[in-house]
């Protein structure tokens, strides 16, 4: 069975749709959304409708810091642009959307797999896993062979080898990497709805559970429409511009 893992959709319906289509065409039968479904983008309600329908058919969904900020105002300090987008997002969601966001767990464990938005080590602290030390802490706290995360928007695969600390690997899009459970793997799958590595294409990862292979995918999507919607909604210009540059 193939599992598609999406992170940081950030209310980008065009990116979400493109990734889901790509994943289904590649044979994905199961889905996981590892947080930050909303914030920044112009389609929070539509994105939540899609994700909720997947959740009803068994998809894993965990909460991100932007999702948390929508349902618990004032709980976290964000930069001004993000704050503005969160306030706007609240006005676009009905009670069912709010209830769905409020129901999301911080961490989901499925057998040998852990799904968490930031770090499995104190998930509510929203620690950025940007280096081997933080990756090691997350893997240690999870205690599983596989951890799938987002929060950091650039895709990266941490793995344990001979050395004690995990090693970071920059994945090449589309390559199915063998990920046998004899070592630990922490995959930051990359942002679906707001890529920041200079490539505008949306990110997600596809895990083949039988063959123990993980592929990081890049999917070109209609960012022009997504950016136009952000401008039309009166959201900060910077949020539209960064989709056009993938930064």
């Amino acid at each position: 069975m193939k599992l598609a893992i999406l992170a940081d959709v950030h209310a980008n319906l065009e990116a979400l749709t493109a990734c889901l289509d790509h994943a289904r065409a590649a044979g994905a039968e199961a889905f996981a959304f590892v947080g930050d479904l909303v914030g920044y983008g112009a389609d929070p309600a539509a994105v939540l409708d899609v994700v909720r329908s997947h959740a009803e058919s068994g998809a894993v969904v965990v909460r991100g810091n932007h999702d948390a900020a929508v349902v618990s105002p004032g709980a976290e300090t964000m930069h001004r642009v993000a704050e503005e987008a969160i306030a706007w997002t609240r006005t676009r969601l009905d009670e069912r959307h709010q209830a769905f966001l409020a129901s999301l767990p911080l961490l989901v464990r499925r057998g040998d797999l852990v799904f968490v938005h930031a770090s499995a080590d104190r998930p509510a602290d929203w620690t950025y896993v940007t280096d081997p030390l933080h990756a090691a802490a997350s893997l240690r706290a999870a205690g599983t062979h596989y951890v799938f995360s987002g929060h950091v928007h650039e895709p990266v695969l941490y793995y344990t080898a001979l050395a004690e600390r995990p090693i970071a690997f920059q994945p090449v899009p589309g390559v199915a990497i063998p990920v046998p459970p004899r070592r630990q793997w922490l995959a930051i799958v990359g942002s679906c709805g707001q890529p920041r590595d200079g490539n505008t294409a949306a990110c997600y990862a596809l895990l083949d559970l039988e063959r123990e292979r993980l592929a990081f995918q890049r999917v070109p999507y209609d960012w022009a429409t997504a950016a136009a919607k952000i401008r039309a909604a009166g959201l900060p210009e910077r949020l539209a511009a960064r989709l056009e540059r993938g930064e």
Partner: peptide
Amino acid sequence: HGHYPDLLAEEY
């Protein structure tokens, strides 16, 4: 192989 994690890469 540049497409795969280098399992022989050592931190030290």
